[in-house]
Nucleic acid binder design. Sequence first.
DNA 1: CGTGAGCTTGACTTGTTTCAACCAACGTGG
DNA 2: CCACGTTGGTTGAAACAAGTCAAGCTCACG
Lengths: 241, 241
Amino acid sequence: MQIRSFDEGTLCAACPAFEFNVCRGVGQVAKECSLTALPQPSEHTILPRRLICRECDLLEVIPIICHGWAASTVTLSDGRRQILSFLLPGDVVSAVLIFEPVIQCSVEAITEVNYRTFKRTEVKALLFKNPDLFSKLSRVWIEEKARVDQLAVDLGRRAADERIARLILNLSDRLARRSLVRDQMMDFPLRQHHIADATGLTVVHVSKVLSEFRRAGLVEINERSLTISDLTGLRCIANMR
Amino acid sequence: MQIRSFDEGTLCAACPAFEFNVCRGVGQVAKECSLTALPQPSEHTILPRRLICRECDLLEVIPIICHGWAASTVTLSDGRRQILSFLLPGDVVSAVLIFEPVIQCSVEAITEVNYRTFKRTEVKALLFKNPDLFSKLSRVWIEEKARVDQLAVDLGRRAADERIARLILNLSDRLARRSLVRDQMMDFPLRQHHIADATGLTVVHVSKVLSEFRRAGLVEINERSLTISDLTGLRCIANMR
DNA sequence: CGTGAGCTTGACTTGTTTCAACCAACGTGG
DNA sequence: CCACGTTGGTTGAAACAAGTCAAGCTCACG
């Protein structure tokens, strides 16, 4: 299964921001989302572990992921790292960039990542002319905020197994909305250290919990792909306990 | 020291959202922020521990705190609670409400709270006519997001004493911007359970850490007020370790 | 063939929670 | 007036979840 990429039609419906990606070259979609006014976005490809941008960078541009996974991260002076969100195909790197040129966290490619960038000034101008686009982008923005809120609750008040179970379920949901899940099986390029950094745990502990999940028949992980074998069980761990 | 209220001129400068509060009745400020088009906001006062709104409420209105402290909280089914932010005089309850009527967390008064509400439709309409107001509100929105991001990092990657030190310093900064700090002394209506819920710790542990801080001569807390006696020391604990 | 990144496992340590008891302040109602 | 419950804070002992350290394994890569 190699569906780390995007299915344009579906994504456009599931993920408002993605309209940016397809606003050129895909006639049908372009008409729908009235973004044809934007000039051709510039396209970039970067290797795993490389940075798309780094903390405090001045970006005159809004990057949107087209292909691959990335993570937005914050690193403390002593090396501790927190991943604030995983970016999937169709995600805006950060909706904040629409109004503010300086980004507060680094964005690192997990897989090979292909992304396109739009000039902020142009997007902003278009935004005011087009209330439909405006409401779509504000939804993106609101969802982004809701996810960090949720993350804070998870990190503040949930145990290790809950956090990991929820991470898996969240990713699975987001991938499913992009039609990137088939039979509970999905592409899963995360290393355990990504999971650790996203859940505020250590790699060692993540390994132990994941082994436990596997032993309990909840998930199977191999070859950069993950299958949820016991959805109910996983949900159960994720919600309560 | 009883400065839990606001100094209108200062707040208006320090805190864009506060202009909403003063847009009526304060001629000078009203002219500056061109919000006179908005009808008189409705005013409310509620007692400590009461809710301003609850999770999933449908709010056709945007509340802004004028006086007192509140907290926006999320509560899990088993009673675990996480405070996502403390709301001080001049704060919008949640910038999300400008575009989205349903609020994702409860907002609870800590002290007696006085707040005013503005109809979302009216604010929204005004927003499009007034790019200056727009950019001010987007700054509020961005700051709100930055704070949750920071919270997530703290909860994910920092130890108990760091979290508590940072909470105190953050509040002190925000109060200082509102001229509510004199000689490192500020009104501090938080109970230890608020600190616990904000830092993802237990009340017992908060008590221990705070006692430690007091013993080390970092802070003094009494009678609902807090003094930072050793700013450098506190900063040191907050940043590194 | 060596090197480095990633994963697993076990033994041990530590930070935080849990449980419990106790005290102080406060308001309420008899 | 006292008795009482409630809320908030403190402290200590024991339990536990997660971290640290360390060793060993696989795999990919040059």
